[in-house]
Design a protein around this nucleic acid. Structure first.
Lengths: 185, 185
DNA sequence: GACTATACGGAAGACTGATTCCGCTTGCAG
DNA sequence: CTGCAAGCGGAATCAGTCTTCCGTATAGTC
């Protein structure tokens, strides 16, 4: 690959992250190109369609989240903090990326398929974090691994509607907390 | 207004409810017209833009919900059932209308403005139902009126992503339930 | 320094779907 | 029964974006 091509690809990815993060999916390809100081033709040589570009960005976010979950599994936070921390990190991630929020709230079939592998990995790690927290008695016994994406999906909609998502997250965490456990951290 | 115009308007509204309910906002004006056995021109004489049509449908849903809430205020269900019943009714309403779900999940500024009045009315009634339930000790003291739209908004996203919304609703209701109160009904 | 495979820019094309327009039809008042 | 204003159908138009195309420029090689 030619040096300038490498440089341009990097510029495009940066520009796309910024543009889609701010404006969401209705961002136009030309805007991305302009931000990257590149022609649309160049943009299309690197990503054959708008969808492909979006998928790449979303995939990246999921990979990052899966890493965060892995770190939590290996870290030495107490079980509650490990679990809640990942949820909070996910929320922050969403808060800074309108396109991600739109995708999570609407879950277009195809986009999700492109991300399936990382999603599974993330899901498994969250399941383990959840199980540990349950064994420690700080999360309700009847919480299920599938409750996590349920909550994150709802969070996306709350963010999109510019409502108080911090409050939503707090309520959700409260919901996971075991009845007997002390005030959540 | 001429008799055939009245008839057509009714057909259009019916057709639009069905079409937008099934296919959501990406429903095309021509589809609505076809369903109503009417030309697009006729459709546009009754509703000047697609947005106007959607707003009318959404407004109708909100009015209906406000009525449901009013009925709950006047009915003789116990405070928990009155409160939870309206939430469940709202969920059912959403479950049958993809366009409504899309609007609730994304809350396009303009659509919500068109519905503001009914939304306020509904909000006030829910607030009263919530307050009654709190006085009866069956809902958490720290629940707030604004938590309700938060939850319903999240529900919309969960539905859109074809996840288990009944589970989500159950978790949300559990979240409202006072810690001491018996198993929710 | 010359050559060529790569890569670039951005105007033009293609598509999709909303909206307009206008000649034809029809309800209904007189 | 007539006249015509109100209403109708749907082809044509318009608009907004994605995507393609191709003449031009350039990195890397000999």
């Amino acid at each position: 690959m030619r040096a300038d091509a490498v440089r341009n690809r990097a510029k495009i990815v940066e520009a796309a992250k910024a543009a889609f993060g701010e404006r969401g999916l209705e961002t136009q390809m030309e805007d991305v190109a302009k931000r990257a100081c590149v022609g649309v033709g160049t943009l299309y040589r690197h990503f054959p369609t708008k969808d492909a570009l979006v998928h790449a960005l979303i995939l990246d976010k999921f990979e990052r989240m899966a890493e965060v979950a892995q770190a939590a599994l290996e870290g030495d936070d107490d079980p509650w903090e490990a679990f809640a921390g990942v949820l909070r990190a996910g929320a922050e991630q969403q808060a800074g990326d309108r396109a991600l929020v739109q995708v999570l709230a609407a879950q277009p079939q195809e986009t999700m398929r492109a991300v399936a592998e990382q999603e599974t990995k993330l899901g498994e790690r969250m399941a383990e974090l959840l199980a540990r927290a349950q064994r420690a008695g700080v999360v309700r016994e009847d919480a299920e691994p599938d409750d996590v994406p349920l909550v994150m999906c709802g969070l996306a909609a709350v963010m999109q509607s510019r409502r108080n998502w911090e409050r939503y997250l707090q309520l959700a965490l409260d919901g996971f907390r075991a009845p007997g456990a002390k005030l959540p951290g």
